[in-house]
Design a protein around this nucleic acid. Structure first.
Length: 426
RNA sequence: GGAGAGCUGGCUGAGUGGUCGAAAGCGGCGGUCUUGAAAACCGUUGAGGGGCAACCCUCCGGGGGUUCGAAUCCCUCGCUCUCCGCCA
């Protein structure tokens, strides 16, 4: 959420910046609602003030043993008027709140201009694309031939966009997850975390998935519950500090967690239908940082580097792009995407997205820290990034490390975690 | 699933329907003392919002109700704890 005070003070420039994100803000509506709010709020508070002082007077008079009837007559119709005013004000405040909750974050000044992903700017290319002297296969053919990947069986159980796996391929995914977590925990200073996979509406509103992106989520509603499956561990991990005032000494908070992620993928029906690029359920290792505002831009560079380190250790070629304003996500002020090379697609594909949300999520979830300079609670900044998406990392390894006979070499750093296995073959 | 007890400021914890936004303690901040620190002592210290301002409003788990007036009474939902049952 953006700062309402900023909106009142400098609406035009905010609206201008939001246009970068293709968000057309109805300033007329907002100004009108604000005007109504102001007069309604002043009126309501006046009535409240009157009620308070009159009630106090009644109390005092009664304590002195004097007659209070004339005072009671004075407030006879106050209650109804107040109830009406409070009701109107509440209704209006909800309207304004809804409007604010639907507004995206403003891009940071350092974000390049542009509309689509074609305008994203490549800032780094790392590694050598593998040079194959045989006809390569994509991960689907590789996995199916190895009899370790089965989409039809998953479709039987659940439908499209699910996968079932068996054998060393599953072990490889688990080894990847283990490897990533250990790197972040031991080399990058993250605290390993475990969190619920089902969360409530408030939690999703805190990170920005709700109210606007309900259609992207899986909802689990029953007689006693109304919860959503997490689309990313960013949601529960960032919300660890929801409603809290964190001591300055405890910052930064750095969490790493592996969770499954669930996405309905509504609106992407035709896209990536082959293979396990885009699934309703996938495994991801997520990095989340809660930091002091002054540190957040530096933290974004570091967090992105932490994700990059994994790709480098796995010897996977990738490139790093900075998202242009138009391609930025709803809550993000600045984002780096890491795209891994997939020979089977002859393309770089996103494997990590690292974002600085500034105080956008913090304001929604009332996450604050106590600034020793002012002694006051102030909003923290939140960041997150995949470190990495395990399913897509598995694909990348299959395709980049495939051999002429359809077997898959295990990257050096994973061999121990694979119990000494150096390649996966039929 | 059954029975009971709770939910109050950064934390612990008092609270009679009427100057209660709320005692006290801890913690924080400032000071005295000290070469410095600790201890002791003194002072200070909730959050959010509106208004040009004076100043005002809201908040005692969430929501609703009773009342001129609710932290306090009633209803409801959520959560925590204890006991019993079941259970990975």
């Amino acid at each position: 959420m953006l700062d309402p005070k900023l909106l009142r003070a400098d609406l035009d420039s905010v609206v201008e910046q939001l246009r970068i994100k293709k968000y057309d803000f109805d300033t007329g509506l907002f100004s009108q609602l604000e005007k109504q709010r102001k007069s309604l709020q002043i009126n309501t508070q006046q009535l409240q003030s009157e009620r308070n002082s009159k009630s106090k007077a009644i109390g005092k008079t009664k304590a002195q043993g004097d007659d209070i009837q004339s005072l009671l007559d004075e407030v006879a119709d106050l209650g109804d008027k107040l109830k009406q005013a409070e009701g109107d004000l509440d209704e209006l405040l909800v309207k304004i709140e809804d409007l604010l909750l639907g507004m995206p974050n403003v891009p940071d000044a350092s974000v390049p201009a542009g509309n689509t992903e074609d305008d994203n700017i490549e800032v780094l290319v790392w590694g050598e694309k593998p040079d194959f002297d045989f006809e390569i296969k994509d991960h689907v053919d590789l996995g199916v031939n190895l009899k370790m990947l089965d989409f039809e069986r998953a479709a039987k159980l659940s439908g499209s966009r699910f996968v079932s796996m068996t054998g060393p391929l599953v072990t490889l995914q688990r080894a990847l997850i283990q490897f990533m977590i250990d790197q972040h925990r031991l080399q990058h200073g993250y605290t390993e975390a475990y969190a619920p996979y089902l969360v409530n509406e408030a939690t999703l509103t805190g990170t920005g998935q709700l109210p606007k992106f309900k259609q992207d989520l899986f909802r689990i509603a029953s007689e006693n519950h109304d919860l959503y499956l997490i689309p990313t561990a960013e949601v529960p991990l960032t919300n660890f500090v929801a409603g809290n005032i964190v001591e300055a000494n405890d910052l930064p908070l750095k969490y790493v967690a592996h969770t499954p992620c669930f996405r309905s993928e509504a609106g992407s029906y035709g896209r990536d239908t082959r293979g396990m690029i885009r699934q309703h359920q996938f495994e991801k290792v997520e990095l989340v940082q809660i930091v002091k505002p002054e540190d957040s831009m530096q933290a974004l560079e570091e967090l992105t580097a932490h994700a990059e380190a994994i790709l480098q250790l796995l010897e996977l070629p990738y490139r790093k792009v900075i998202l242009c304003g138009g391609d930025l996500g709803f809550a993000a002020a600045k984002t780096y995407d890491l795209e891994v090379w997939l020979p089977g697609q002859d393309a770089y594909r996103e494997i990590s997205s690292c974002s600085n949300m500034l105080d956008f999520q913090a304001r929604r979830m009332k996450a604050r820290w106590r600034n020793p300079q002012t002694g006051k609670p102030e909003l923290v900044h939140t960041l997150n990034g995949s470190g990495l998406a395990a399913g897509r990392t598995l694909i990348a390894i299959m395709e980049n490390f495939q051999q002429a006979d359809g077997s898959i070499r295990i990257p050096e750093v994973l061999v121990n975690l694979m119990g000494g296995l150096t390649e996966i073959r039929l």
